[in-house]
Write a protein that binds this DNA or RNA. Structure first.
Lengths: 143, 143
DNA sequence: TAGTTTGCTTGCATTCCGCAAGTGACATTC
DNA sequence: GAATGTCACTTGCGGAATGCAAGCAAACTA
């Protein structure tokens, strides 16, 4: 278990604090998968992501869990499997992710559906409310 | 000049695209210094930051410039010095940074002044307008 | 012109990362 | 119930990135 000793407690700056938990190329992608897609298992992240290595994924899931961004529980129907789920703290990253999506979509071509991007921009708070509702009441797979 | 070959063009996901440009522990801190503090020079970033090494800073400035997030010009009054400045694309990260600050301030103690955090949360668009105005008309050092 | 400042660059040791291969617990199939 | 497959990792290894200290040329200052 590699330690992130050099990155710990650099300063009290809120941005620096956030980067200690999310300042790498992978953590936010895992949060994205948990928030916007239905992915909740190890192999789900492995395959549907951008090609993260399994050891890195394992390490990032541990860090995100110890940062309080997600929880890890055994699947009830399959004891091999773990179910990863965003905490409220992790869910509170939704505005950040939405702004990042809007920023990327504004400054270059992306795969994000233009209709969704437009909705994010024009009905930002409503979009965030819906994402949160889907998290509170899972199973509601909104378009 | 180390290359970020392995991180290039992982997918068309807008979050992945953003992380290719900002997905490390330092880039966003440089953007923060440019956006919220008056820092614009190499040694300014070096000293006021969280202790970035000079070679890393040099590399990150190059990357941010080639990503179109900042510009680099000679200082007119001191030809040794370069002046780094956010582009419009870099400035468009302001909503992201504000959301990150709000997220950090909500989930733990930070050094951010509570009054500023409250203003960011309650008058978000006005706060963003002011940050942008200070960028458009430099010299206006608002509190 | 001697000395300082500025923005890097270079060497080097340490750490991190991606890839491939393995492992043990569990599930499925026959 | 034995063979096979799945799941969530773990390990080994080579290469890349990082942090630290030192050095450097150009430009400014005394």
């Amino acid at each position: 278990m590699p330690q992130r000793s050099s990155r710990a407690a650099r300063s009290g700056c809120p941005i620096s604090i956030a980067l200690e938990q999310l300042g790498d190329p992978w953590s936010l992608l895992i949060v994205r998968d948990l928030m916007f897609t239905g992915l909740r298992t190890f192999n789900g992240f492995l395959r549907a992501g951008e090609g993260i290595a399994s050891n890195i994924l394992s390490d990032r899931l541990d860090r995100l869990e110890s940062s309080g961004l997600l929880t890890k529980r055994r699947d009830r129907t399959d004891a091999r499997r773990f179910v990863y789920r965003l905490t409220a703290k992790g869910m509170d990253l939704a505005p950040v992710l939405v702004d990042i999506i809007l920023w990327s979509a504004k400054h270059g071509p992306t795969d994000a559906p233009p209709a969704t991007v437009r909705e994010m921009r024009r009905r930002r708070t409503r979009f965030l409310r819906r994402v949160r509702a889907r998290w509170t009441h899972p199973g509601t797979r909104a378009a």
